[in-house]
Protein backbone atom coordinates (compact mmCIF):
# COMPACT_ATOMS: atom_id res chain seq x y z
CA UNK A 1 0.00 0.00 0.00
CA UNK A 2 1.30 3.42 -0.92
CA UNK A 3 0.89 6.16 1.62
CA UNK A 4 -0.61 9.44 0.50
CA UNK A 5 1.85 12.26 0.38
CA UNK A 6 1.79 14.43 3.43
CA UNK A 7 3.20 17.40 1.54
CA UNK A 8 0.46 17.22 -1.07
CA UNK A 9 -2.21 17.19 1.62
CA UNK A 10 -0.67 20.20 3.27
CA UNK A 11 -0.44 22.01 -0.07
CA UNK A 12 -4.13 21.41 -0.82
CA UNK A 13 -5.00 22.59 2.63
CA UNK A 14 -3.06 25.79 2.11
CA UNK A 15 -4.61 26.34 -1.34
CA UNK A 16 -8.17 26.10 -0.07
CA UNK A 17 -7.33 28.37 2.82
CA UNK A 18 -5.80 31.01 0.55
CA UNK A 19 -8.70 30.89 -1.91
CA UNK A 20 -11.36 31.36 0.74
CA UNK A 21 -9.37 34.09 2.43
CA UNK A 22 -8.92 35.86 -0.90
CA UNK A 23 -12.64 35.74 -1.58
CA UNK A 24 -13.40 37.15 1.84
CA UNK A 25 -10.89 39.94 1.35
CA UNK A 26 -12.39 40.89 -2.02
CA UNK A 27 -15.74 41.50 -0.35
CA UNK A 28 -14.20 43.61 2.36
CA UNK A 29 -12.13 45.60 -0.14
CA UNK A 30 -15.28 46.59 -2.04
CA UNK A 31 -17.08 47.53 1.15
CA UNK A 32 -14.27 49.85 2.18
CA UNK A 33 -13.96 51.21 -1.31
CA UNK A 34 -17.65 52.11 -1.35
CA UNK A 35 -17.51 53.55 2.13
CA UNK A 36 -14.43 55.65 1.41
CA UNK A 37 -15.86 56.93 -1.88
CA UNK A 38 -19.09 57.95 -0.15
CA UNK A 39 -17.19 59.46 2.76
CA UNK A 40 -14.81 61.52 0.59
CA UNK A 41 -17.29 62.79 -1.97
CA UNK A 42 -20.12 63.11 0.50
CA UNK A 43 -17.87 64.66 3.10
CA UNK A 44 -17.02 67.58 0.86
CA UNK A 45 -20.74 68.27 0.37
CA UNK A 46 -21.42 68.08 4.04
CA UNK A 47 -22.44 71.33 5.68
CA UNK A 48 -25.08 72.74 7.94
CA UNK A 49 -27.31 73.75 5.07
CA UNK A 50 -27.48 70.16 3.84
CA UNK A 51 -29.49 69.10 6.87
CA UNK A 52 -31.46 72.31 7.45
CA UNK A 53 -32.44 73.75 4.06
CA UNK A 54 -34.68 72.88 1.15
CA UNK A 55 -33.08 71.77 -2.12
CA UNK A 56 -31.57 74.38 -4.43
CA UNK A 57 -33.29 75.10 -7.74
CA UNK A 58 -31.89 73.30 -10.79
CA UNK A 59 -28.38 74.58 -11.35
CA UNK A 60 -28.50 76.69 -8.21
CA UNK A 61 -26.00 76.30 -5.42
CA UNK A 62 -26.38 75.84 -1.66
CA UNK A 63 -29.52 74.38 -0.13
CA UNK A 64 -29.93 70.93 1.32
CA UNK A 65 -32.07 67.88 1.71
CA UNK A 66 -33.79 68.65 5.01
CA UNK A 67 -37.34 67.98 3.68
CA UNK A 68 -36.14 64.64 2.34
CA UNK A 69 -34.65 63.67 5.71
CA UNK A 70 -37.92 64.51 7.40
CA UNK A 71 -39.98 62.71 4.74
CA UNK A 72 -37.86 59.58 5.00
CA UNK A 73 -38.19 59.59 8.76
CA UNK A 74 -41.97 60.01 8.54
CA UNK A 75 -42.40 57.26 5.99
CA UNK A 76 -40.05 54.89 7.79
CA UNK A 77 -42.03 55.49 10.98
CA UNK A 78 -45.27 54.75 9.15
CA UNK A 79 -43.74 51.70 7.51
CA UNK A 80 -42.45 50.39 10.84
CA UNK A 81 -45.80 51.10 12.50
CA UNK A 82 -47.66 49.15 9.83
CA UNK A 83 -45.08 46.45 9.17
CA UNK A 84 -43.50 45.56 12.50
CA UNK A 85 -46.56 44.44 14.54
CA UNK A 86 -47.93 42.00 11.94
CA UNK A 87 -44.37 40.83 11.28
CA UNK A 88 -43.81 40.11 14.97
CA UNK A 89 -47.13 38.31 15.28
CA UNK A 90 -46.47 36.24 12.17
CA UNK A 91 -43.12 35.23 13.66
CA UNK A 92 -44.83 34.30 16.92
CA UNK A 93 -47.38 32.24 15.05
CA UNK A 94 -44.71 30.41 13.07
CA UNK A 95 -42.49 29.71 16.06
CA UNK A 96 -45.01 29.07 18.82
CA UNK A 97 -48.16 27.75 17.23
CA UNK A 98 -47.33 26.36 13.82
CA UNK A 99 -44.37 24.07 14.54
CA UNK A 100 -44.68 21.15 12.19
CA UNK A 101 -48.17 21.94 10.99
CA UNK A 102 -49.10 22.25 7.36
CA UNK A 103 -50.54 25.72 7.36
CA UNK A 104 -47.44 26.95 9.18
CA UNK A 105 -45.24 25.48 6.47
CA UNK A 106 -47.31 27.28 3.85
CA UNK A 107 -47.09 30.59 5.69
CA UNK A 108 -43.34 30.16 6.15
CA UNK A 109 -42.93 29.51 2.43
CA UNK A 110 -45.04 32.55 1.56
CA UNK A 111 -43.01 34.77 3.87
CA UNK A 112 -39.82 33.58 2.17
CA UNK A 113 -41.36 34.32 -1.21
CA UNK A 114 -42.43 37.75 -0.03
CA UNK A 115 -38.88 38.45 1.09
CA UNK A 116 -37.68 37.53 -2.38
CA UNK A 117 -40.10 39.82 -4.20
CA UNK A 118 -38.07 42.63 -5.80
CA UNK A 119 -38.80 45.88 -4.02
CA UNK A 120 -39.78 47.58 -7.26
CA UNK A 121 -42.64 45.08 -7.59
CA UNK A 122 -43.85 46.08 -4.14
CA UNK A 123 -43.76 49.68 -5.32
CA UNK A 124 -45.72 48.83 -8.48
CA UNK A 125 -48.26 46.89 -6.44
CA UNK A 126 -48.89 49.79 -4.09
CA UNK A 127 -48.99 52.12 -7.09
CA UNK A 128 -51.75 50.01 -8.64
CA UNK A 129 -53.71 49.53 -5.43
CA UNK A 130 -53.30 52.86 -3.63
CA UNK A 131 -51.91 55.54 -5.92
CA UNK A 132 -54.23 54.82 -8.84
CA UNK A 133 -57.32 54.50 -6.65
CA UNK A 134 -56.55 57.65 -4.68
CA UNK A 135 -55.53 59.44 -7.82
CA UNK A 136 -52.26 60.90 -6.54
CA UNK A 137 -48.86 60.01 -5.13
CA UNK A 138 -48.60 60.19 -1.36
CA UNK A 139 -46.37 59.58 1.62
CA UNK A 140 -48.99 57.14 2.89
CA UNK A 141 -48.51 54.97 -0.18
CA UNK A 142 -44.75 55.16 0.40
CA UNK A 143 -45.18 54.05 4.01
CA UNK A 144 -47.36 51.13 2.95
CA UNK A 145 -44.79 49.99 0.38
CA UNK A 146 -42.04 50.12 3.02
CA UNK A 147 -44.28 48.22 5.47
CA UNK A 148 -44.71 45.43 2.92
CA UNK A 149 -40.93 45.12 2.74
CA UNK A 150 -40.47 45.25 6.50
CA UNK A 151 -43.13 42.67 7.36
CA UNK A 152 -41.51 39.51 5.99
CA UNK A 153 -38.05 40.41 7.31
CA UNK A 154 -39.40 40.97 10.81
CA UNK A 155 -41.47 37.78 10.59
CA UNK A 156 -38.44 35.75 9.66
CA UNK A 157 -36.08 37.17 12.24
CA UNK A 158 -38.77 36.89 14.91
CA UNK A 159 -39.30 33.23 14.13
CA UNK A 160 -35.55 32.62 14.15
CA UNK A 161 -35.04 34.46 17.42
CA UNK A 162 -37.93 32.72 19.17
CA UNK A 163 -36.72 29.36 17.89
CA UNK A 164 -33.47 30.00 19.78
CA UNK A 165 -35.35 30.05 23.08
CA UNK A 166 -34.88 26.55 24.52
CA UNK A 167 -38.02 24.44 24.74
CA UNK A 168 -37.20 23.55 28.33
CA UNK A 169 -37.98 27.15 29.22
CA UNK A 170 -41.42 26.91 27.62
CA UNK A 171 -41.97 23.59 29.33
CA UNK A 172 -41.06 24.96 32.76
CA UNK A 173 -43.52 27.79 32.40
CA UNK A 174 -46.23 25.47 31.11
CA UNK A 175 -45.45 23.02 33.93
CA UNK A 176 -46.29 25.77 36.41
CA UNK A 177 -49.73 25.97 34.86
CA UNK A 178 -49.15 29.00 32.64
CA UNK A 179 -51.38 29.31 29.59
CA UNK A 180 -49.74 29.42 26.20
CA UNK A 181 -50.11 33.17 25.64
CA UNK A 182 -48.61 33.85 29.06
CA UNK A 183 -45.62 31.65 28.27
CA UNK A 184 -45.13 33.40 24.95
CA UNK A 185 -45.30 36.94 26.27
CA UNK A 186 -43.87 36.54 29.76
CA UNK A 187 -41.08 34.06 29.15
CA UNK A 188 -40.33 33.47 25.48
CA UNK A 189 -40.54 37.12 24.41
CA UNK A 190 -38.57 38.25 27.41
CA UNK A 191 -35.82 35.73 26.70
CA UNK A 192 -35.59 36.77 23.07
CA UNK A 193 -35.98 40.50 23.81
CA UNK A 194 -32.69 41.77 22.49
CA UNK A 195 -32.82 39.49 19.47
CA UNK A 196 -36.29 40.74 18.57
CA UNK A 197 -35.26 44.38 18.90
CA UNK A 198 -32.21 43.72 16.74
CA UNK A 199 -34.37 42.09 14.10
CA UNK A 200 -36.72 45.04 13.98
CA UNK A 201 -33.92 47.62 13.83
CA UNK A 202 -32.05 45.75 11.13
CA UNK A 203 -35.20 45.40 9.06
CA UNK A 204 -35.86 49.12 9.36
CA UNK A 205 -32.24 49.95 8.54
CA UNK A 206 -32.25 47.72 5.50
CA UNK A 207 -35.51 49.06 4.13
CA UNK A 208 -34.57 52.69 4.77
CA UNK A 209 -32.19 52.50 1.84
CA UNK A 210 -34.86 51.38 -0.62
CA UNK A 211 -35.58 53.66 -3.58
CA UNK A 212 -37.62 51.57 -5.97
CA UNK A 213 -40.72 51.18 -3.79
CA UNK A 214 -40.86 54.94 -3.28
CA UNK A 215 -40.47 55.90 -6.94
CA UNK A 216 -44.10 55.10 -7.76
CA UNK A 217 -45.64 55.75 -4.40
CA UNK A 218 -44.41 58.78 -2.51
CA UNK A 219 -42.63 60.14 -5.55
CA UNK A 220 -40.54 63.09 -4.39
CA UNK A 221 -40.95 66.73 -3.62
CA UNK A 222 -38.70 69.75 -3.09
CA UNK A 223 -40.96 71.08 -0.34
CA UNK A 224 -41.27 70.45 3.37
CA UNK A 225 -43.69 67.57 3.96
CA UNK A 226 -46.92 69.24 5.11
CA UNK A 227 -48.96 66.05 5.09
CA UNK A 228 -48.34 62.46 4.08
CA UNK A 229 -51.36 62.74 1.80
CA UNK A 230 -49.26 64.36 -0.93
CA UNK A 231 -46.05 63.51 -2.76
CA UNK A 232 -43.41 63.39 -0.05
CA UNK A 233 -39.73 64.22 -0.20
CA UNK A 234 -37.36 61.38 0.69
CA UNK A 235 -33.62 60.80 0.68
CA UNK A 236 -33.31 57.88 -1.69
CA UNK A 237 -35.40 59.32 -4.50
CA UNK A 238 -33.65 62.65 -4.03
CA UNK A 239 -30.30 60.91 -4.44
CA UNK A 240 -31.61 59.20 -7.55
CA UNK A 241 -32.90 62.43 -9.13
CA UNK A 242 -29.97 64.63 -8.17
CA UNK A 243 -27.29 62.13 -9.11
CA UNK A 244 -28.81 61.73 -12.58
CA UNK A 245 -29.02 65.50 -13.10
CA UNK A 246 -26.45 67.42 -15.17
CA UNK A 247 -25.86 70.00 -12.39
CA UNK A 248 -22.69 69.69 -10.34
CA UNK A 249 -24.27 71.24 -7.28
CA UNK A 250 -27.09 68.69 -7.33
CA UNK A 251 -24.62 65.86 -7.81
CA UNK A 252 -22.67 67.07 -4.81
CA UNK A 253 -25.89 67.23 -2.78
CA UNK A 254 -26.66 63.65 -3.83
CA UNK A 255 -23.29 62.55 -2.46
CA UNK A 256 -23.97 64.37 0.75
CA UNK A 257 -27.35 62.69 1.08
CA UNK A 258 -25.73 59.32 0.36
CA UNK A 259 -23.28 59.87 3.16
CA UNK A 260 -26.11 60.75 5.54
CA UNK A 261 -28.13 57.64 4.79
CA UNK A 262 -25.08 55.34 4.82
CA UNK A 263 -23.97 56.73 8.15
CA UNK A 264 -27.45 56.31 9.60
CA UNK A 265 -27.72 52.67 8.50
CA UNK A 266 -24.20 51.94 9.73
CA UNK A 267 -24.96 53.55 13.06
CA UNK A 268 -28.10 51.49 13.58
CA UNK A 269 -26.25 48.30 12.65
CA UNK A 270 -23.40 49.02 15.05
CA UNK A 271 -25.81 50.01 17.81
CA UNK A 272 -27.75 46.76 17.52
CA UNK A 273 -24.47 44.84 17.53
CA UNK A 274 -23.47 46.54 20.76
CA UNK A 275 -26.89 45.95 22.25
CA UNK A 276 -26.69 42.23 21.48
CA UNK A 277 -23.27 42.00 23.06
CA UNK A 278 -24.44 43.89 26.11
CA UNK A 279 -27.36 41.55 26.66
CA UNK A 280 -25.27 38.42 26.25
CA UNK A 281 -23.27 39.19 29.33
Amino acid sequence: MKRRSRELRKLKDLLVKLCSMGAALTGIVFLFWILSEVAIRGGSALNWALVTETPPPPGGTGGGVAPAILGTVYMMALGALLGVPPGLLTGVYLSEFARGNRFGAIVRFMINMMMGVPSIIMGLFVYAVLVLTLGHFSGYAGGVALALLILPIVARTTEDMLALVPNTLRESALALGAARWRVTIGVVFRSAQSGLLTGVLLAVARVSGETAPLLFTSLNSPYWPQSLNQPTANLTTTIFNFAMSPYHSWQATAWGASLLITAAVLLVTILTRLMLQGSKR
Binding site: T168, E171, S172, A173, A175, L176, G177, A178, A179, S191
Partner: peptide
Protein backbone atom coordinates in the same frame (compact mmCIF):
# COMPACT_ATOMS: atom_id res chain seq x y z
CA UNK B 1 -53.74 24.42 34.40
CA UNK B 2 -55.02 23.16 37.75
CA UNK B 3 -53.43 19.76 37.09
CA UNK B 4 -50.06 21.44 36.63
CA UNK B 5 -50.51 23.41 39.81
CA UNK B 6 -50.98 20.13 41.65
CA UNK B 7 -48.21 18.31 39.79
CA UNK B 8 -45.03 20.40 39.69
CA UNK B 9 -41.98 19.59 37.63
CA UNK B 10 -38.23 20.16 37.86
CA UNK B 11 -36.15 19.71 34.73
CA UNK B 12 -32.70 18.42 33.97
CA UNK B 13 -31.13 21.80 33.45
CA UNK B 14 -32.11 24.78 35.57
CA UNK B 15 -34.67 26.79 33.61
CA UNK B 16 -34.54 30.17 35.28
CA UNK B 17 -36.81 32.75 33.65
CA UNK B 18 -35.16 36.00 32.52
Amino acid sequence: IELRRKVGMIFQKPTVFP
